[in-house]
């Protein structure tokens, strides 16, 4: 047990460390003035000089690397080129916003996907099955930003049901404090991106569950359950589905990673102030410290999500630890 977790944690740390290192060298080795990616060229020469010493840019590369790691350890990502404020302040609220957008819709998508996939797989050959499989494949094939735009076009502009974007109505919460997450206004803003994301993420678990249920039909334990005289529904929910849930759960870490990475796009369309939008805006403004910090946080979120999903999975199926 402990050996497995030790290895798993070590792997996580190694992954993150490699990413940090990769970022460090990417931002300093790529063509152009390496200083320009760390210190804003817009600052006064004097201020630039001060920062250069603070970040150790006058020192050799390997020393810079340790300064970089040391700064990261205390969440010092430098100053934003755009606002001049510490990047850490800029970014603090964004992480939660992204989590609130991605995780609930992932859970909803997996729950819905598993249920509908099981029912449809159980009644194979039906017309609904064909239609749903085709629809979900097409949905999966459509770019999510385009689906979002259509959703805005229809639900927000035509029907005026939901706001066009943002996390709360402008001016409602000037302080942007925790209170806003408990307001109806927030939920109202969350509703449309949540639905689009859920629908989009729904396809993968749905198709997987369907084919995995299809594969159980004819298995001995299903036949046995049927022979025992259990109702059709009971066989499905208690036998077929239970066995198919595990392979579905294994895919959660992977798709969670996709979803976090993909949030960049959804956040942009809905102007949702998460990490992804921040990163896209920062890239547009060549605000490199913010780009770097946002990317690293997205990476941490991906890796942490994977770790948590693995943890849940081992709770579901302890066999994996002994593998």
């Amino acid at each position: 047990m402990s050996a497995f977790w030790f290895r798993r944690l070590w792997q996580t740390v190694l992954t993150l460390l490699t990413m940090l290192t990769l970022m460090f060298f990417m931002f300093r080795m790529l063509p152009g003035d390496p200083m320009a990616t760390v210190i804003s060229p817009a600052l006064y020469p004097k201020a630039q000089e001060t920062l250069r010493i603070q970040f150790g840019l006058d020192k050799p590369l390997w020393e810079q690397y340790f300064v970089y790691l040391k700064n990261l350890a205390v969440f010092d990502f430098g100053l934003s080129f755009h606002t001049g404020r510490p990047v850490a302040d800029e970014i603090s609220g964004r992480l939660l916003n992204t989590i609130l957008l991605v995780f609930p819709s992932m859970i909803a998508a997996y729950g819905l996907g598993a249920l509908v996939g099981a029912i449809v797989g159980w009644r194979r050959g039906s017309k609904i099955e064909t239609v749903l499989v085709f629809l979900s494949t097409s949905l999966q094939s459509a770019p999510v930003f385009w689906l979002s735009m259509l959703a805005i076009l229809f639900f927000s502009i035509r029907l005026d049901l939901f706001p066009i974007g943002h996390i709360v109505s402008p001016g409602m919460f000037p302080e942007e404090n925790w209170r806003m997450y408990f307001s109806a206004d927030f939920l109202h803003h969350l509703a449309l991106p949540f639905m689009v994301n859920t629908l989009y993420q729904f396809c993968f678990p749905f198709l997987l569950m369907r084919s995995s249920i299809l594969a159980t039909v004819g298995e001995d334990y299903i036949e046995l359950a049927k022979m025992k005289g259990l109702t059709d529904r009971r066989v499905l929910y208690h036998h077929a589905m239970r066995n198919s849930l595990l392979p579905l759960a294994t895919t959660l870490p992977m798709t969670l990673g996709w979803a976090v990475a993909g949030s960049v796009v959804i956040e942009t369309v809905f102007s949702w102030p998460g990490l992804g939008l921040l990163m896209v805006e920062a890239v547009g403004r060549s605000d490199y410290p913010v780009v770097q910090a946002a990317f690293l946080l997205i990476a941490v979120l991906t890796v942490a999500g994977t770790l948590i999903a693995d943890l849940l999975y081992t709770l579901l199926d302890p066999r994996i630890v002994n593998e």
């Binding site: 992954t15 990475a261 990317f295």
Partner: peptide, 19 residues
């Protein structure tokens, strides 16, 4: 493993922002 932990789209955006 490391590449799997790398957020796909954000990574490409960062790369493109630098090149």
């Amino acid at each position: 493993d490391i590449l799997l932990g790398l957020p796909f789209l954000p990574f490409i955006i960062v790369l493109l922002s630098l090149t």
